[in-house]
Design a protein around this nucleic acid. Structure first.
Lengths: 220, 220
DNA sequence: CATCTAGTCAAGAACTCGGTTGAATACTTG
DNA sequence: CAAGTATTCAACCGAGTTCTTGACTAGATG
């Protein structure tokens, strides 16, 4: 068997690695794990031009990680399947465990998490029926694409405004995109500073959905 | 929070993708999943110069995927932890499911698998006590680093010579490095051509070990 | 110590990547 | 159909990657 054939096969596997080899593409995957989105919205999320974002999306598409469909004059991208989410989750876990720079970069971005109480998704699932208030701290469109049943949408820029909506004595559980998502952290800190009791879900909504826990869709 | 801090965090995650973004590095990870190896041996496996292999290994080390230790005048590399194996397995699965080129490249390298019977690791585990003959079709050093209990070592280049060692009426189960490893395929084809009954384990030894199934070490 | 082996480092050539800009295309709306 | 919006394409340039070659270093051996 020709050695080039073996090399060619591993080059194909490397295509998937290549897709994740750029920080902006990783951000795109992270956002797309929340649900379908148009190019312009994605460009805004990753802070890049639309043209550049489009090109990154095409790299992801060539690696089979995303698919697209036209809706009117917009093109909506989504992750190809749940396995891609699983891959992204494992990759982050490996990076967190082994890449020394992650700890630094995470602290730089997320701030100090020492005073931040976290609960697991099983714990949240248990408490769901027991009078806990759940905040989905993601952009409204991500909430609408799917959220924890009973959670209310509190987009990041509305957190301050909604602090007083929390009845006295009620505990808030906040969640957002994942372990390394800052929105829930910020919300919990703001709530605690306002004298409320608040904790964050240690993971994000994609992990909740992939664990087979119940999901609600739409503005409800 | 500065947007550069977010970008920096995702750039760190992308380091891991970058490590897998080259076919030769992917091959290195695949070989290292079988166990510890020295640089020269690895260079031979991936068909590259020692200098180039050393540089690839350092990229993997910087991404936290491998660690090294000195043994006399050799340097032995190994995967950092089992999570890295899990990541490599998921990456291959995503590639197999979504990258169109994988199917082609795999067929080119592995040949037609239609006439090739495969058994799962649970099936093999069940049959272990029941008179099945198990062939470990990997280089001897990988067998010594860990193998399925009761399996005998039949390195790829010894398959032809060992065909007649199989008693009549005994079925052989062959395995090697993984789903995309060609050695077990070749052994099964050779055995069948010689009139024996033979099947291959659908996965490889690393998956067997990671599933928590029993493992034997050494020349036994 | 001189020599050997195994691995690493440094520099350079060919190529690929990641971003910008401006033009082209697809579909919708007036 | 003309005008507008959303996306893609093409060209370009600086920066990074991959492999080669040859020099260098750590430890083993005669």
């Amino acid at each position: 068997m020709a050695p080039e054939a073996k090399a060619a096969l591993f080059d194909q596997f490397a295509q998937v690695g290549k897709a994740f080899s750029n920080g902006r593409r990783a951000e795109l995957v992270d956002v797309l794990a929340q649900g379908e989105r148009a190019v312009e919205a994605l460009a805004g999320q990753i802070g890049q031009s639309v043209a550049n974002t489009s090109q990154h999306l095409q790299v992801l598409a060539r690696a089979g990680l995303v698919t697209s469909r036209r809706d009117g004059n917009r093109v909506l991208y989504r992750l190809a399947d749940e396995q891609v989410e699983a891959l992204w989750e494992t990759l982050r876990a490996v990076a967190a465990a082994n890449v020394s720079g992650v700890r630094q970069a995470a602290e730089e971005y997320l701030g100090d998490r020492d005073g931040l109480e976290q609960v697991s998704r099983d714990e949240l699932a248990r408490r769901l029926g027991a009078g806990v208030l759940v905040w989905d701290v993601r952009p409204a469109s991500e909430y609408e694409a799917g959220h924890v049943p009973g959670a209310i949408s509190v987009p990041p820029d509305e957190v301050q405004r909604r602090l007083d909506d929390v009845p006295d004595g009620v505990e808030v559980v906040a969640y957002c995109r994942g372990r390394f998502c800052v929105y829930a952290d910020d919300a919990v800190r703001a709530l605690v500073a306002a004298g409320r009791r608040a904790v964050r879900l240690d993971e994000g909504f994609p992990e909740w959905r992939r664990a087979g826990l119940p999901v609600a869709v739409g503005t409800g």
